[in-house]
Design a protein around this nucleic acid. Sequence first.
DNA 1: TGTTAAGCGAGACGGTACGTCGCGTCTTAAT
DNA 2: ATTAAGACGCGACGTACCGTCTCGCTTAACA
Lengths: 192, 192, 192, 192
Amino acid sequence: MSRPLSEAARTKMLGAAQEIIVADGLDACTVDEVARRSGVAKTTIYRHFKNGDELVIAAMECFKTDVDTPDTGSLAGDLRAMVEQFVATLEPAVSRRLFVSMLHRALDHPDFEQAFRRSREAEYGPLRRVLQRAIARGEVDPEIDVPLAMQFLQGPFMALQLLRPDAITIDDRLDQMIELSCRALAPQPVPL
Amino acid sequence: MSRPLSEAARTKMLGAAQEIIVADGLDACTVDEVARRSGVAKTTIYRHFKNGDELVIAAMECFKTDVDTPDTGSLAGDLRAMVEQFVATLEPAVSRRLFVSMLHRALDHPDFEQAFRRSREAEYGPLRRVLQRAIARGEVDPEIDVPLAMQFLQGPFMALQLLRPDAITIDDRLDQMIELSCRALAPQPVPL
Amino acid sequence: MSRPLSEAARTKMLGAAQEIIVADGLDACTVDEVARRSGVAKTTIYRHFKNGDELVIAAMECFKTDVDTPDTGSLAGDLRAMVEQFVATLEPAVSRRLFVSMLHRALDHPDFEQAFRRSREAEYGPLRRVLQRAIARGEVDPEIDVPLAMQFLQGPFMALQLLRPDAITIDDRLDQMIELSCRALAPQPVPL
Amino acid sequence: MSRPLSEAARTKMLGAAQEIIVADGLDACTVDEVARRSGVAKTTIYRHFKNGDELVIAAMECFKTDVDTPDTGSLAGDLRAMVEQFVATLEPAVSRRLFVSMLHRALDHPDFEQAFRRSREAEYGPLRRVLQRAIARGEVDPEIDVPLAMQFLQGPFMALQLLRPDAITIDDRLDQMIELSCRALAPQPVPL
DNA sequence: TGTTAAGCGAGACGGTACGTCGCGTCTTAAT
DNA sequence: ATTAAGACGCGACGTACCGTCTCGCTTAACA
């Protein structure tokens, strides 16, 4: 019966939060700073979110974009297309920062843990579809354990993303990696 | 005419720092807390280390243990042995925390970035030797790009460690993943 | 063609305001609190008064009671009667609070300054009449400056009211004070 | 055995507090503002004073100056000298503000009540001595109740200070009022 | 008797102060 | 000179009010 929470205020504060996150990282995204940058009063922020963490999590959710399910006709092509989309969506250095920061916060804060998990799920569907199509095509061993295979596919990519400060680039190295992954999952040749 | 830095104090503070790190994580390891727990004065800490980060890094270095180079006769066996040693060295949940925290700090602090890199290098030698023996045995494609192969071996393991809150356990899943990794690197069967 | 301001609402809010003022003092009489206690919405309050100050001032005006002009036949008797009426009108501790609070607000807010002045003028008329009758009776020096004498009469009373936390009581001290005041205003004996 | 509270910090914050008080009044003297103006951190202020009220009270105490006991040979002269000193010490408009504000805060806060009382006691000694000398000289009725007389001397002056927004000035009005006060306390002429 | 402008209740909004916490650094006093 | 203790500046936190503004419902005056 009373005045609803202002959508404008919410937009402004989430916008500011996202700016801060992209520019200076998750840890710079404090309630005070969001209030300063957005012009929204701190009290108002606390009306929308019960604490600073919730604000940050909400801002992070906004980064989520729908992940397409490519269909290039080959597993390698599909994987490459997914990486390309990933890279196109967010500056690789930024996404690396965010990934690490989320992982870090998730260590101690269940809310972040869940948010992180949710954010990863967006990729699971497309990847699973890609994988299953590859199985159907006979590119992948039909007896493979799908969750395991998915984790296996993500692993080298994640190592690349995390351990290389220069982050991911679309290059030969990536292609080689994808090729190795495909080979691992390929149906075993029947031993003579 | 002056007094050398007390080795006893150094020992106490590093010990306390390690205790804190294992028990509550890297972020709990502040100068204040180390002073509290060790009984060593903050001033003293700052005499031994130019700032809190250095203290933490020094404490982290102490965790480093020599990584053996196993020789079981097969790549899969060697990899498994390495994982087993890794798991035996430090509680998996703890090592996961530390890995993530280091990664996080490395984002902004070059000192941590270097420390992190150094800590990883301890594994590179043994892993490289294991890999090269496998090449010699003909288990791995001799034309493989070694750095790439290493990243590829570490990747799935890292994904397992990071994305599973229950951390790594030695089980079938691990074995399967090792098998996939080996298969990825195996020489290509000569097409008929 | 529209709806007039509700008299009922006005009554409720002024009533609540007065209750608060008497019970907890002027500073507790905020728009929020009046809204809470009266059940009238803040909006409505602001529709009746352009701001909280006006509400408070209006509530204060309601306390004003006509001050009688006593006629006991002597200046001392009249003064005492006035004090008695003053004390009977409002709990001394309360009137002390209000006096001080009004004085305080008057420091910065001209509206309160005027309200305070108006509230004091209610006493001026009766006091002036009492004084002039005393002059007529020969109790007071006919050449006295009337405004000065009035302020002089109020002074000790005000000191009593302000500086004694236990506020004013009708007692010997008061009688003595009145006697001294009368003596000061008495016609000077002609020096021989 | 540890580092003592910094006298420099204390000086800076009290100085800033006094500046604020004189310039903008007691109510503008908030912890935040003192921190801003003095450059002293808010936390440090709370190390020196357990809350904002204590800071304000401490700042007020600094205004206290020794009140001289004049000796002009007549009660009227002494009173006038005291008023002159009072006026010379602090801008009348400022002292009026402070007086009212202190009175106001004293209503609800015992700490301020005591501070206010203490601040007034500085005048009591000199005034009492002046009064007693007047009694000795025969200017004042020797059977007078001293506390009553003092209140009586202060009262008209206080009325002047409080009720005149233009505050006190040294002028005829003041002289007349002093004369009335003296007359009130004068020994009663023996009735024939 | 239906329309409609305004009153009305509820509470969101921006603002400012509060007092707390934890950090890394710096200073004193004592060993 | 080293140590212990803790003050210092900084800045985020979350809370409490304040006065104002905005919503959506209701109601009273007019047609």
